[in-house]
Computed example of a mutant assay.
Amino acid sequence: MATTTLTKAARNRQRHGLTFNPVRPAWKEPASPLYSSIKAVILGLISLSIIIPILLVVSTSLADDKQLVAAGGYVLWPTNPTFDSYKAIFSGQFMIRALGVSAFITAVGTFLALFVTVTMAYATSRPVLLGRPVLMMVLFTLLFAPGLIPMFLMVKQLGLLNTIWSLILPGTFGAFNFVVMRSFFMNIPTELIEAARIDGASDFMILRKIVLPLSKAVIAVVGLFYAVGFWNAFFNAMLYINDQTLYPVQLILRNFVVQGGSMAEQIGVTSTPPPQSMQMAVVVIALLPILIVYPFIQKHFNKGVITGAIKG
Score class of each variant (00 low, 15 high):
174 G>L: 04
250 Q>D: 07
166 S>D: 06
186 M>Y: 02
272 T>G: 00
187 N>M: 09
203 D>C: 11
202 S>P: 01
244 Q>A: 13
230 F>V: 00
195 A>T: 04
163 T>D: 06
212 L>K: 05
240 Y>T: 09
193 I>Y: 04
189 P>N: 06
178 F>E: 01
188 I>F: 08
254 R>S: 14
263 M>T: 08
199 D>C: 08
162 N>V: 15
257 V>F: 06
194 E>V: 10
268 G>Q: 13
202 S>K: 01
239 L>N: 10
170 P>E: 08
183 S>C: 04
228 V>S: 13
238 M>S: 13
216 K>E: 00
233 A>P: 00
175 A>Y: 03
239 L>H: 07
202 S>I: 05
211 V>H: 02
245 T>P: 01
169 L>W: 04
201 A>N: 03
198 I>W: 06
226 Y>F: 14
244 Q>H: 03
163 T>C: 10
224 L>M: 14
249 V>M: 10
202 S>R: 01
177 N>Q: 09
196 A>I: 08
212 L>I: 14
231 W>S: 04
185 F>Y: 13
174 G>F: 02
237 A>R: 07
256 F>Y: 09
247 Y>N: 09
247 Y>T: 00
193 I>P: 11
238 M>R: 12
263 M>R: 03
163 T>W: 01
211 V>P: 03
206 I>W: 05
192 L>I: 09
250 Q>F: 09
222 V>N: 02
261 G>M: 11
246 L>A: 08
198 I>Y: 11
207 L>I: 12
242 N>P: 04
252 I>M: 14
255 N>A: 08
203 D>R: 00
162 N>A: 06
270 T>G: 15
227 A>Y: 02
215 S>G: 05
239 L>V: 08
170 P>A: 10
192 L>Y: 05
208 R>C: 01
183 S>I: 03
268 G>C: 10
173 F>G: 08
254 R>H: 14
254 R>Q: 15
219 I>C: 06
211 V>E: 05
203 D>A: 14
265 E>Q: 12
262 S>N: 07
229 G>R: 09
270 T>F: 14
173 F>R: 13
262 S>K: 00
215 S>I: 06
218 V>S: 09
194 E>Y: 12
224 L>F: 14
249 V>S: 14
166 S>L: 08
197 R>H: 06
206 I>Y: 02
265 E>T: 01
259 Q>D: 15
202 S>A: 11
272 T>F: 13
177 N>W: 01
220 A>N: 13
178 F>D: 04
266 Q>V: 15
170 P>W: 03
198 I>R: 02
173 F>H: 12
250 Q>Y: 14
177 N>A: 14
192 L>C: 12
264 A>C: 03
266 Q>S: 07
167 L>R: 09
261 G>K: 11
188 I>E: 00
177 N>F: 08
218 V>N: 10
